[in-house]
Amino acid sequence: MTVLVRDLRPDDPADVEGFARVRHLALPYILWTPEAIVHRLAHTHPDARFRSLVAEEDGEVVGTAQVQLAHDSPEPGQGMLNIYVRPDRTRRGAGDLLVRAAEKHLAGHGATKLFAWVLDEPANRTFAERRGYRASRSAHFLRLDLTGGTLPPLQSPPPGVELRSAADFADDPRPLFELDAMTVSDEPSDVDAELTDYEVWIEETWKAPLLNRELTTVALVEGRPAAFSLAWTDAATGRYATAMTGTARAHRRRGLAKLTKNASLHGARAAGYTVALTGNDSGNEPMLAINKWFGYEICASEVRYVRELA
């Protein structure tokens, strides 16, 4: 049996479905839809040199890679590769071929430091370490059953605070961009990011197929966005995910992040979603505490691996 690596064919529905299927089987804690995969490939900033690769065995997609430069980081020369192979197709060469193709692509565009998320399981970690990667920070995937009736009661906003949805900003989402940019810069990471291009944010985030503007909840203080909980949904599977929850620096420690996320979760349950997913850096104790309060449980963990290129 021969394994080959090539670029994803975004115009081939079967190819994209195969990519989504592999990702769902290997990493079921994140929402993967064909529309979102194609959108990311089409709308990621050109400076990211983004590629979606597949490993094909006898005509079947068995492995995937998403590869890009950290173009929005103030530090140049950083590349990211995330490799996932179908759990029943490992140890057949697909992962190794994808890593080689990804590293070659990134090195060819000037990357000198590579970052990869790896599931915190012995076989996955051994795979990374044998290829010269060293462990860095870790993160958790969390899951909440929305059918169990465990959500805290809905809270009324405190005086001076108003809850709105992202849909209310359809005519001018720039205030949400500005809040997102501030919170992203404070998010724990070993790759700093800066959101500075509003038009890019519109294409990559605001128009993303997974974004649910009705369930994305925003807390306004004096008419300005102060906190938000960004919701992704996949109606076909009944799954909801919190892609980001953040608060402007001047309004932290007031419970606004918890307020927006609680309203969004209640809205998701009312809309018929049955499972809520999210993820947190293992060092982000405030957000982990909030999610524990909601009833989320850790269902898997991953480790960020780093490799310096000579």
Rank of each mutant, 00 (worst) to 15 (best):
D192H: 05
V306G: 03
E203A: 15
R174G: 02
S229G: 13
W206N: 07
L195P: 00
R307V: 02
T33M: 08
S229H: 01
P159N: 14
T64G: 03
V161P: 04
Y240A: 04
S156F: 03
L265G: 01
Y29M: 10
M1F: 05
E214T: 15
G255W: 03
A128E: 04
P10L: 07
R213L: 11
E214Y: 03
G267K: 08
A36Y: 03
T205G: 01
D186G: 00
H24S: 13
A94T: 02
T274E: 09
D15F: 03
D96H: 12
H24Q: 13
E57Q: 15
V5N: 03
D7E: 14
S52W: 14
D186A: 01
H109Q: 09
R89H: 10
D172F: 05
Y198V: 06
M80G: 03
A42W: 09
P157F: 12
D47F: 05
A123Q: 10
A300C: 04
G295A: 13
S73L: 13
L142C: 11
E187A: 13
A101H: 09
A42H: 14
F115H: 12
G148T: 09
L215I: 09
A48L: 02
L41W: 12
R86H: 14
A263N: 11
G283Q: 12
R174T: 04
A111R: 06
P158G: 06
E214C: 03
I202C: 14
R130F: 05
M182F: 04
